[in-house]
Every structure is written in C-alpha cells, then in structure tokens.
C-alpha cells in the first residue's frame, strides 16, 4: 500500500460526520419530514471519536426558540469527552451566539442565513474570534437555464438558498463563496440541495467549481451513499473534507472502513 503524497504536504483529507440535533437528540433528515431518532448526541459523538472521525459537526435544527439552549448542553458535554474539533451550526445570528457556542466548547461555528442577510456579520465575527472559527455554510441548488438546451459549452450555475433551503436568494454560489472568503470566512461547508438525501454521490461539478475558486478549505456535503463518492469528492471535486450524516448514524458505512478504502485508493487519510 503506497500512499500518494504530494511533495511537502502531509495534510490529510477529513471525514466529518454531521449530527442533526433537534431538542437535544440526534435525528435523521433535516430538510425532509419523518425525523428518525438516532440517539444521544454525546454518545454518538463518542462513537465517532472511537471510529476515527476527523471532526464533528452539530447542526441544531430545533425550531422552537426556547428549546434552543439544549444545544449548549450538548456541546458542553461533548467537549468534556471528545477531544477533537467541533463545529456547531444552526441559528447563529449574533456575536453573542458565537461567544456562547465557543464558551460551551465549540471550536468553530457555521453561519448560513445570517451571512446572506448581513455580510458584515461574517467580517465582524472573523475579526472578533478569528477567521479559523468562522465557517460559512452554503446551500446551493443548480439553476436550470434555457441556455443549457441551446449551448453545448453549457457552464452550470448554482444558486444560494437560505432558511434551510426554503428561500431562494438569486445569489450565484461561486460568486458568493469568493465573497465570504474575502469577508473573513475560514472554511466553506458546501451542501448540494439537489444531491442531499439522494445517496447518489456529491455534486462534483459544484464542489470543484467552488473549491477551485477560493483559497480556503471546502467541505463537500450532500449525496454521499457509498465509499466511492468520498473518493470522487476528494479526487475529482478537490474537496478538503467530506461530510455525511445518516450514512454513518445507522452504521451503513463505518468510518474506519471508509478510511481504509480511501487510503488504499491513494488518498492521504489519517488512519
């Protein structure tokens, strides 16, 4: 087994399980109905830690405002037991929200809707807490254009959506990625809405379009269904990290097996 490493770069590609948390429990399926309970987040995080996950993302999808604070307890308990990078997203709107999240033990926060509605929030957050802890999440959906039918040199476009994919913004995803980088984002969490939940692979075109137009790390998300999809995200999509949720929760795919596979395929992976 020979591991391919480019000259003077030992940095590994990251595998990131994402836990959708609703009122303090892990659930499956954020943007869809039929939420399925997938356990206690602290326990799930511990299991991923044992299995060799490189980071963990919590996405708080709790709708009711008063139950929001359960996520702080979840983060705090997780950070007491799991010594790896922890990103928390969902409902982060103010500098105070970020401060509370970091204080609870998160290392990074992920901002989505509030970045679109107020770009200066990104720069203020980066200035105050450092770019390394500001992740901008982009939910992107392919725009179907008439152009596609007429032109063989069709160049795909994606549009940014907010409010968990419910609201279109008219913003071009590639332009948006460049902009948030300029405003101080340290990383981009890129979800393909077309692929999310389909299990037929990441949107490779989208991933590479974004990853190649910015100079900050890009996490591919949405569509992972089998091991090869991760390989494609890294090798064809130039992703720096790949995220998946339900695939790991219900043990359809073990992180350990996935990492062994990627290593065998020559991807630089931490095993």
């Amino acid at each position: 087994m020979k591991v391919k490493k480019s000259v003077l770069n030992g940095l590994t590609k990251r595998i990131i399980p994402c836990l959708d948390v609703d009122k303090g429990r892990v659930v499956k399926g954020t943007k869809f109905i039929n939420l399925r309970d997938a356990g206690n987040p602290v326990e799930v995080a511990k299991r991923y830690d044992d299995e060799g996950a490189d980071e963990i993302v919590f996405l708080d999808i709790t709708a009711s405002h008063e139950k929001r604070k359960t996520i702080y307890e979840v983060v705090e308990k997780t950070a007491e037991n799991v010594f790896m990078p922890l990103t928390v997203g969902g409902g982060i709107r103010t500098l105070e929200d970020i401060r509370n999240m970091l204080k609870a033990g998160a290392d990074k926060v992920s901002i989505n809707t509030s970045a679109v509605e107020n770009l200066s929030f990104v720069s203020k957050a980066a200035e105050k807490y450092g770019t390394q802890c500001i992740v901008v999440a982009i939910d992107a959906k392919r725009s179907v254009s008439k152009y596609k039918l007429q032109n063989t040199n069709y160049c795909p476009k994606w549009e940014v959506y907010t409010y968990g994919g419910r609201k279109s913004t008219g913003i071009d995803a590639v332009e948006w990625a460049k902009k948030v980088e300029k405003y101080g984002a340290g990383e981009i969490l890129l979800t393909s809405m077309d692929k999310d939940g389909t299990k037929d692979g990441y949107d490779i075109e989208l991933t590479s379009a974004i990853s190649e137009s910015v100079n900050i790390p890009v996490i591919a998300s949405g569509g992972a269904g089998e091991m090869k999809h991760f390989y494609d995200a890294f090798e064809k999509g130039s992703a720096d990290a790949a995220l998946a949720a339900s695939l790991f929760h219900f043990k359809e795919l073990k992180i350990k097996d996935l990492k062994k596979y990627l290593l065998r395929k020559g991807v630089n992976i931490r095993c």
């Binding site: 030992g10 940095l11 590994t12 990251r14 490189d54 340290g186 100079n215 900050i216 790390p217």
Partner: peptide, 12 residues
Amino acid sequence: DNLKIPHMGWNN
C-alpha cells in the same frame, strides 16, 4: 500552488 490557507486539519 493550490494549497489552502489556513492550514487546517490533521498533519504529521
């Protein structure tokens, strides 16, 4: 070249 900044993740 195409190395990203910040250097973020696991390295030897």
